[in-house]
Design a protein around this nucleic acid. Sequence first.
DNA 1: ACAATATTCCACGGATGTATGGAGGATGCC
DNA 2: GGCATCCTCCATACATCCGTGGAATATTGT
Lengths: 223, 223
Amino acid sequence: MGDPARKAALFDALATTGKALSNGKRLELLDLLAQGERTVDALAKAAGLGLTTASAHLQTLKQAGLVTTRREGTRIHYRLAGDDVAHLFALLRTVAETHRAAVPVARDAYLGSDGAQVVTREELRARVETGDVVVLDVRPVEEYEAGHIPGAVSIPVGELTERITELPDDTEVVVYCRGAYCVLAHDAVRLLAGQGRRALRLHDGMLEWRLAELPVATAGHSA
Amino acid sequence: MGDPARKAALFDALATTGKALSNGKRLELLDLLAQGERTVDALAKAAGLGLTTASAHLQTLKQAGLVTTRREGTRIHYRLAGDDVAHLFALLRTVAETHRAAVPVARDAYLGSDGAQVVTREELRARVETGDVVVLDVRPVEEYEAGHIPGAVSIPVGELTERITELPDDTEVVVYCRGAYCVLAHDAVRLLAGQGRRALRLHDGMLEWRLAELPVATAGHSA
DNA sequence: ACAATATTCCACGGATGTATGGAGGATGCC
DNA sequence: GGCATCCTCCATACATCCGTGGAATATTGT
């Protein structure tokens, strides 16, 4: 009763999934995949990995059950196996931030400060309803198309300088990007400030918005 | 703007916490700690580890921010750093079970089948209210004292044979133990069946009960 | 069938993780 | 102080992981 070997086998099986979360690069890949599916090649470039290395990490994630694949011609698209995986990633982040001082420090060092006033999801939602603000999505277009906050305008941060005139200058702008660990919104706020504009920033990003089960619009039709 | 080295440092910091979940023995330790605090020695014995090995694993968990310590005389008591850690563990389990077929297989192989009818938390709560059932906690006494389902009777599974007469034979008994991966309740049901008694089993256990924020009673006073 | 593209598989060296036994620290009791 | 207890730290041997390049595989287009 309660064979230790079988107990070890059970927890080792769990550990296989845990192991997928034990490497920074794999976590970066999960962070990217939380925005939508991507090909191996795209993931490798985005995470700054060699192709074969990225492939190996993706195999590990697949083995762990965290991602699934879809073949389209010669390309293979990876995506998260489910929203529960995104929740797991987000919870790992929260736990690490709560209980390890080094994490918030590293986060601030990476994101830098933008002096922007931050807005919670609920505040943003309320202000969108009243038409009080313009919401700006600064992620790459593909990610915007895969799902964005209803009513948001898409201007990838790389094009923001030349397209800044598309933003009204008589309405407050709230910028957002992928999630709590995404620099794009910080960069955008700094860039806008450099142009004499003032912008607010959503406290986290699309990932948390989706996990909170708030409405999401996709390329074709609004949700 | 988005220094790759800082990005890597941030995700590596996260990975330190993830790494804590990458080893079966550490997951066993977390599972035990979810029931309440324990000394190093007790944890080592319960998990079937050498003392120094257990100590090393606990250092890893502490480094990851998942556990904290408290010294009492010569002993050091480890405990989970917070309920969010228990949630993280539970979510990892759920994700692994959902997306990896090997996990439920290993679970069933470890727990064995007891033929018992299972009861959900809500069903149990309702039936406790009406006084319809006796709830039996078969965990070690210390764990019962650290927190149990209000109204539950404590008979550790090891003493169940000799103390079986303490259970009424005109009322249904619902057995529970630590959580979804705990054998004690399964063993108890098999044992009761061997004595001609029939018992139901709570679908999961104390861990999930607590995380669902249902009422918990402690040794002295009921919650 | 052949070439091109995208991805996976394989082999290797360097780094990191794991278990074990023995030494070293901290606390409590006499 | 001296000793016992409990735990941590250190050194060692072994296994596993990581990143890298080259070979093998699968699909598409010609």
